[in-house]
Design a protein around this nucleic acid. Structure first.
Lengths: 261, 261
DNA sequence: GCTTATGGTTCATTATTTGAACCTCAGCTT
DNA sequence: AAGCTGAGGTTCAAATAATGAACCATAAGC
């Protein structure tokens, strides 16, 4: 892997920890030599991507990404456009609704809206959604070109719960079902006791860019209810897509041409 | 410079362009070979930091920073804490108020609130604020350790307008004045016809982390008014600092120890 | 159909990255 | 207090990855 790739992976690793870490820890977590990790951290710090606490000497994500994110959102306001729809859906479903985006080969949660009730599913911003074990992952994959599905299913598939489907052929069946229905269902795929439904937000060329997902406690969720959530997720996802690309393409370059896949 | 540094500089350069650019342009702008620029872009793209438009083949900032920024803001909610104060100040002053943050050796605008009137100063999110030529820059420097002031004044100081002060000794006088008064004034330092006042947001150890600035058209701004803006900027900056570090230090590591400078 | 752009690729040369061993310091144990 | 442990940080020869001139492919303009 290139040096840049390793440094960005370090940054990624750092971002997934829920606390600041020391040099030795981050080096171990990234399987890097301490000296190498340090050089990366120093270089990343120079550019504001990490910060070192003056007292504890531990490292954390810096503020440079905040600047970049604001520029990105000013030009491609995915969150700004999507969040109102997520909010509405969280209210109408009275369950946790989260929005994910595909980036760097993975699907990550970029926004969460909690419903105003005590018993609800907790999803963290920044968490990674495995393709085979989450409603979002399945909804995303189901609308990807075949070769991307193949690639995803060739990787080792972790069994998170007793219910996680890890047989590639069974997953393909789920994907077909999802593609036909327009939304996916994950029945305790990542965590026991949680059921969720998700639908992809798609670019004008059909390629998915992220997902809208509703997550509910299995105990209070009927088959009818989850199908209803799925239908609502489709509606929200399509509304986001329309609004995002509708206003976006005004500044875009050539909306007509269609990529070959 | 290290490879990582060069790649991050490329990312920075890309973020400062107000449109997508092609490979040849970005390579030229970064003084890199085309092949090198391309390898950087591919690597950055793998991690979601840049995106390539499928049609035009041009590059833009990707969505990875959005994820990182949300994690950073969830843990160190500078924007979330600061924005309400900036909004209030924009209303009470009826002028443009912007918030900057020190990151990667530079002071960059991270939020702007426009007042509801037609004739106002425009500030862009992401713009860099030169230390010697802006109210924010002066307010920041004035509260930095002496050696950082020296370092800043040793660099070539660009003369943006006829009024830009570029003599290091005169700037030192402005900094002393700023330190004594608590806020800085920039009289057409960066752009003709604009006057602004700024105050630093400071960490518990006294080190500034960013600035609150009010920018107004010179034509309608009296000396009394600009001093009033300055006083309001101090109040806002202190309120931000208190709220930010007040809640922050609960999860922090060791609030008592004081760094030596 | 030629010219001149563009984006993208190759591979021998070159410069950077790498990491084992090292230092220093703070806290803990005996 | 001496010794130990593990932290962050540094060094420099060896190993590896970055580099860029020259290349190809394609598209637009003439």
């Amino acid at each position: 892997m290139s040096t840049i790739g390793k440094a960005l992976s370090l940054l990624d690793t750092l971002s997934r920890l829920d606390k600041e870490v020391g040099l030795t820890d981050i080096a171990r977590l990234c399987s890097l030599d301490k000296a190498t990790a340090r050089r990366f951290l120093v270089e990343l710090e120079k550019h504001g991507f990490v910060e070192q606490d003056a007292d504890s000497r531990r490292y954390r994500i810096g503020s440079a990404p905040v600047r970049l994110a604001r520029i990105r959102e000013a030009r491609y306001p995915f969150l700004r456009v999507a969040v109102p729809f997520i909010k509405t859906l969280a209210e109408s479903s009275a369950e946790t609704v989260h929005l994910s985006e595909f980036s760097g080969g993975r699907l990550s949660t970029i926004h969460v809206e909690d419903p105003p009730r005590a018993h609800r599913i907790i999803v963290d911003v920044g968490s990674i959604l495995p393709f085979h074990a989450t409603a979002s992952g399945l909804a995303f994959l189901a609308f990807c070109p075949a070769r991307e599905i193949d690639a995803a299913l060739q990787k080792p598939l972790e069994k998170f719960t007793d219910h996680t489907v890890v047989d590639p052929e069974l997953i393909r069946a789920l994907l077909d079902e999802t593609a036909a229905r327009g939304f996916s269902i994950s029945h305790q795929g990542l965590e026991a006791g949680v059921i969720s439904a998700a639908a992809p937000v798609r670019a004008p060329d059909g390629r998915p860019i992220g997902c809208v997902a509703v997550a509910a406690p299995l105990s209070r969720t009927t088959k009818t209810a989850i199908h209803d959530f799925g239908a609502q997720a489709i509606a929200a996802a399509n509304a986001i897509s329309e609004k995002y690309y509708g206003s976006e393409r005004l500044t875009g370059t050539s909306p007509k041409t269609r990529r070959r896949d």
